[in-house]
Amino acid sequence: MNAEIDTRIVRGACPHDCPDTCAFEYHVKNGKLVEVTGDKNHPMTQGRLCVKLKDFASHHYNPDRILTPMKRVGPKGSRQFEPIIWDEALSTIRDKWSGVIAEYGSQAIMPHAYLGHQGVLNGLTAGDAFFNRLGSTIAEKTYCESGSSTAWLMTVGPSGGLDIESFVHAKYIIVWGMNMTSTNIHGWPFIVRAQEAGAKVVVIDPVRTRTAKAADWHVQIKPGTDGALALGPK
């Protein structure tokens, strides 16, 4: 039996903490993952994967990968942990929380979580019903983007971002403080297509990045002067 017959393709998505959720093709040979490549047929990610996915198959089988709950058995910082089963982990959490609630009340429990690799449905709402029923303190849950999200709401309002696939129809594009060729590998191709169709691309960045070099106009401001520039145009 040749290698092509032995190997099958399983489609999936990247499990890392990133909103792009790149479409994957998992190459499985004789029941074992041997390679991961991007799905070129996906309309958004188009087969492009970031460097975090290099050697993903070997990461999957890394002997240091955590596969069970780990319980700390030494002082904090000692890195002394031992694997335990899920029943023990859940019982330990229940006992600890019961003690906290009995002494301080349920609001002493405050969940702190974010998207991670759970996606929008699970990541943003996971556990909400449970913690509401528990009567715990409900906060932002994450401080990952709280500052930028608050600034967006105060300046733009409750509006989502632009559909990045619509960038191909734009005539004038401003990339402010972002090295898209390195940090937004799925958005940049749409800007290139717009540029090829005649759009002007302006990059505002103190650093002469690869993105700045590809722009029609690089506005190389001094660090910390973004606010002055933003308030300047009339």
Rank of each mutant, 00 (worst) to 15 (best):
N2I: 00
A3T: 00
E4S: 00
I5T: 02
T7Y: 02
I9L: 07
I9P: 00
V10M: 11
R11A: 13
R11L: 11
A13R: 15
P15H: 11
C18T: 13
C18G: 11
T21L: 15
F24D: 02
F24G: 06
E25P: 03
V28R: 00
N30F: 03
K32E: 15
E35W: 06
V36A: 05
K40M: 06
T45C: 09
V51H: 14
K52C: 13
K54N: 13
D55K: 14
H59L: 15
Y61C: 05
N62F: 10
D64E: 14
K71I: 04
G74P: 06
Q80S: 06
P83W: 05
I85W: 01
L90I: 14
R94V: 07
G99S: 11
V100K: 09
I101R: 05
I101A: 06
E103F: 06
Q107S: 12
P111E: 05
H112R: 07
Y114M: 08
V120H: 10
L124S: 12
L124N: 09
L124D: 04
A126Y: 08
G127C: 09
F130T: 08
F131D: 03
R133G: 08
R133W: 08
T137A: 12
I138C: 01
I138P: 00
A139Q: 07
A139L: 05
E140T: 09
C144K: 03
S146H: 11
G147V: 10
G147L: 10
S149L: 13
W152E: 01
L153R: 13
L153N: 09
L153K: 12
V156K: 14
V156L: 12
P158N: 15
G161E: 12
I164K: 02
S166Y: 01
I173K: 04
V175R: 02
V175Q: 03
S182D: 10
T183G: 01
I185G: 01
I185H: 01
G187Q: 06
W188S: 01
F190V: 00
G198V: 05
V201T: 06
V203S: 07
I204R: 03
D205I: 08
V207M: 09
R208P: 00
T209P: 00
R210Q: 13
T211C: 04
D216T: 05
V219Q: 12
I221M: 11
K222Q: 11
D226N: 09
D226E: 13
L231E: 14
